[in-house]
Design a protein around this nucleic acid. Structure first.
Length: 866
RNA sequence: GCCCAGAUGGCGGAAUUGGUAGACGCGCUAGUUUCAGGUACUAGUACCGCAAGGUGUGGAGGUUCGAGUCCUCUUCUGGGCACCA
């Protein structure tokens, strides 16, 4: 290959990036003459540096943005920084840098890296959530939410590290111990701030049905998370009241039909009755403390061994006061769900069954499976939770589960001890964090006036800059002056709230801020009404529940206070897979970066320069901690960013994980070179720009035109449906065909020009720099980034003949070419007369012929001898 | 533990509503060119078999003329589980 032909990405890519920048082509404007399209990738946390794995997410969004632009949409494609969070505080502790300095440094680095990717981003809308210009509006919204009744203050449990005297995140609790101190973690109650997301549970649930451009599995996960269940709330009266606590235990159940199978009542360790009793009984207190040591994560609670403690209390059965049940404290009962108390029916609930077997409690079946013998039916190792008929249940006998539920609730109601109740698993959103690097909650605590909102005129409540992380705990709490303020209401000395907001709050409205940035308001209403909702949101499946649910809540809350006119922020959602890479370890067992590894003959790997052997480990998600990351700079330098973009879009379907490999990026690099060679080699043989291919062409020219137009149709479909890998495969086929079809004459030249222009346009969303360079060489008008997406000519896309597979008794035996859409009887005649088929039939009687039009023919024969 | 996904050649993967399993890329094999090595081009490449043919989509059953696709059970891998973001 001569130097003249080689495509030099290192020079060409920055050149086009400058051209786009200078022309400000990606600057979004409110323009009602075009349909709008808002593309958004979940914004990054500025953790340090990006690796090529992060690139997949942004490139995917960029392909969509460029594709929609070409299709005539007014596209908004912004980028920003989810800049609050724990890693900045960890860095402050470990490296003695200020969280703000660390964060801003990272943003600078990562922005430069993102720019390298050649993304079509409107950087004028860039934002960082740690900027007081952003979070002041968040504080303002918090105050409006308070007025609208969307904020609550209540007790909830946190992981408390008694040595470091600090609150721990779940990920900082390892095997029940604090990650730094190693101390046994305690569950502690704090009064904290909440958003009342449960008020909107029903709407958040039912509107999921309308989100038809969301993956079904994300909707399912959200449905399960909200966890609507219908059942009953009922009281079990205590045989003897607990002094200063209660006369009855209230439980929630979804199975009131099984009440006659009840054998115990269990309450949570932090249930008020348990707390009261614990004060009187040291053994019980010890058990409660053991339960609390499990921390607050659901996974930890659920995987722990199911344990109970008999309180000695007894309750009366609501349908038969002479029948009493024991009351246990159980570690699997959660105070946060329902009433913090359950009744156990071991025969029809697996968890209750295991508990009953462990503590020797009765197991009495009351639901009979269809067809089972009531005298013989017994429960073994498995509870029976399916449908059936009630028995041994007095007035419920003979009813189905469904009817028995209804009858039981009616009876409870008549007796005045219970009623129908709908419960959600969803809990209110606790937004309090006892940390520094977050948005301060704008309230003041005054001894006389109580909780007082910070007046709007005093916003933002800025974080103090002079803090230190020498000691664990919240620096805001121990700052000498920051929290001491005068009460806005009475003027007496008061105390600032030192909790900051969960970073999920920051990311719950940034898309609205992108759409309508404003100096004076949280959002510019006109702009937000124009751009929202986000037409295509792209991010990892790990955000399927929390982030997406919180953003849906927040959008409703913003609507309620008049900031927006919509309830659903994301009309379309795509969840992409992660980029993985091999891991490498040196002799000391330390991870080694891929760039330091050299692969030798026979699969041996050594450390570059030193010849120290390196072991090749599992293929895992790219992460800094495992060092299996590839920096975008290195890729851009060796292969060009277009090759990387092409590779990231090829191979795996976008929702799946995909492995980054040297071979893969080299293949992509070859594609870039081939495209360029094809274009530059053709320049001498194609007619001048503007020469059009015509309808009257025949032969190779027609064949090439058909290929071009079929590719247009296919790629357009694929890109619209997020099938980037298939679009890539089609473009390979196009290029292969283009290299093979060699015609001559002016017709072919014109068809070839059309094909090359088409190729440039079709690759432009994926490899925009290469496309610009080809477009320039071909003499296209203006920038390709402003060019219109090509349209397929239906006459050229249509196929006249089809290849049908012919099966004999379900086994494929032949292929036959027939006219498309041929009538069934004609197909049958043609197939039966077709020589290879006739040979197979040979003497057998044809029982039946199944014809699937344009696809397959299945000839069924009578077995021999019949 | 619970919820949600996924599993197809040596590898990444393709396969409209159930209708030719393996598109496309990587790798590999043989050849050509250039050249002494990384480029380009041509041909081949699921597995077994000389062939005819047979077998094949994590595993075990089932439905169907026909199953990668639907149903039941099961194994393994990944994501989430409310203070990682």
């Amino acid at each position: 290959m001569s130097d003249k032909q080689r495509y030099n990405a290192r020079e060409i890519e920055p050149k086009w990036q400058r051209v786009w920048d200078d022309a400000q082509v990606f600057r979004a404007k409110l323009d009602r003459s075009k349909p709008k399209y808002f593309v958004l990738e979940m914004f990054p946390y500025p953790s340090g540096r990006i690796h090529i794995g992060h690139g997949r997410n942004y490139v995917m969004g960029d392909v969509v943005a460029r594709f929609k632009r070409a299709q005539g949409f007014n596209v908004l494609h912004p980028m920003g920084w989810d800049a609050h969070g724990m890693p900045a505080e960890n860095a402050a502790m470990e490296q003695k840098v200020h969280p703000a300095a660390w964060t801003l440094d990272n943003i600078e680095t990562m922005k430069a890296q993102l720019k390298l990717l050649g993304l079509s981003i409107d950087w004028s809308r860039e934002l960082a959530t740690c900027d007081p210009g952003y979070y002041r509006h968040q504080q303002w919204m918090f105050l409006r939410f308070m007025e609208a009744g969307l904020v609550a203050r209540k007790e909830s449990a946190v992981n408390w590290d008694p040595i470091d005297m600090t609150v721990l995140a779940n990920e900082q609790v390892i095997d029940g111990r604090g990650w730094r101190s190693g101390a046994l973690v305690e569950k502690r109650k704090l009064t904290q701030w909440f958003f009342k997301i449960t008020d909107m549970a029903e709407d958040l649930l039912s509107r999921l049905d309308t989100l038809d451009r969301w993956p079904e599995r994300v909707r399912t996960m959200q449905r399960n998370w909200i966890g609507k269940s219908e059942g009953a709330r009922l009281k079990f009266a205590l045989t003897a009241p607990v002094p200063n606590a209660a006369e009855a235990i209230e439980v929630f159940t979804t199975r009131p039909d099984t009440l006659f199978g009840a054998s115990f009542v269990a309450i949570a360790a932090d249930h008020p009755i348990a707390q009261t009793l614990g004060g009187q009984d040291p053994k019980l207190q010890a058990f409660i403390e053991e339960c609390q040591r499990l921390g607050t994560s659901e996974a930890a609670l659920e995987t722990a061994e199911k344990l109970g403690f008999d309180t000695g209390l007894r309750v009366k059965h609501p349908f038969d006061p002479s029948w009493t049940l024991p009351v246990y404290i159980a570690n699997f009962v959660l105070m946060e769900y329902g009433t913090g108390a359950i009744f156990g029916c071991p025969a029809h609930d697996q968890r209750d069954l295991e508990f009953a077997r462990k503590y020797g409690l009765p197991v009495k079946p009351v639901v009979l499976p269809p067809g089972a013998d009531p005298n013989a039916f017994d429960i073994g190792a498995d509870a029976y939770s399916e449908d059936g008929t009630l028995f041994r249940s007095q007035f419920l006998d003979g009813l189905t589960v469904e009817n028995a539920k209804r009858a039981a609730i009616e009876k409870l109601q008549a007796l005045g001890v219970g009623q129908r109740q709908i419960t959600y698993r969803l809990r209110d959103w606790g937004i309090s964090r006892q940390r520094y690097w977050g948005c301060p909650i704008p309230v003041i605590h005054c001894e006389a006036c109580g909780v007082v909102p910070v007046p709007d005129a005093q916003l933002p409540v800025n974080l103090p800059k002079d803090i230190n992380f020498d000691r664990p705990g919240n620096p805001l709490e121990r700052h000498p002056t920051w929290k001491h303020v005068a009460c806005p209401r009475c003027g007496n000395p008061a105390r600032r709230e030192t909790d900051t907001m969960d970073t999920f709050v920051d990311s719950s409205w940034y898309f609205a801020r992108f759409a309508g940035p404003s100096e004076t308001a949280a959002v510019d209403k006109e702009a937000v009404d124009y751009w929202l909702p986000v037409d295509q949101y792209i991010g990892g499946i790990e955000h399927a529940v929390l982030h997406l649910l919180y953003a849906r809540f927040f959008t409703r809350a913003m609507h309620k206070i008049g900031l927006t006119s919509i309830d659903e922020p994301f009309a379309g959602l795509f969840t992409q897979g992660m980029i993985t890479h091999e891991t490498y370890k040196d002799l000391s067992g330390a991870f080694v970066f891929p760039e330091e590894v050299e692969r030798r003959e026979g699969g041996v790997a050594v450390k570059r320069g030193t010849n120290e052997p390196v072991t090749v480990g599992a293929i895992e998600k790219m992460s800094k901690s495992k060092k299996n990351v590839v920096p975008p700079e290195v890729v851009a330098d060796t292969f060009g960013i277009d090759a990387a973009r092409w590779f990231l879009m090829s191979d795996s379907p976008p929702e799946r994980d995909s492995e980054w490999s040297d071979a893969g990026i080299q293949g992509a690099w070859r594609f870039v070179q081939r495209v360029w060679r094809m274009v530059s080699d053709s320049l001498d043989t194609i007619p001048a720009p503007g020469t059009l291919a015509t309808q009257s062409m025949t032969g190779d020219a027609l064949a090439l035109r058909q290929l071009s137009h079929r590719t247009i149709a296919g790629v357009t479909d694929d890109l619209g449906a997020f099938r980037f890998n298939k679009a890539v495969a089609r473009l390979y086929e196009f290029l292969n065909g283009l290299e093979k079809l060699k015609g001559a004459g002016s017709d072919f030249g014109a068809a070839r020009r059309e094909a090359l222009e088409t190729l440039s346009l079709l690759i432009s969303p994926m490899t925009p720099h290469l496309a610009e360079e080809c477009w320039l060489a071909l003499g296209g008008t203006g920038l390709i980034v402003d060019a219109k997406w090509p349209e397929a000519d239906p006459d050229l896309v249509r196929q006249d003949t089809v290849t049908l597979a012919v099966q004999i008794n379900g086994k494929r035996r032949a292929e036959i070419n027939l006219a498309k859409d041929l009538a069934d009887p004609d197909v049958e005649t043609a197939v039966l007369a077709f020589e290879p088929v006739a040979k197979s039939i040979d003497g057998h009687r044809v029982k039946k012929v199944i014809i699937v039009p344009n696809r397959i023919v299945n000839v069924l024969l009578e077995p021999a001898g019949s």
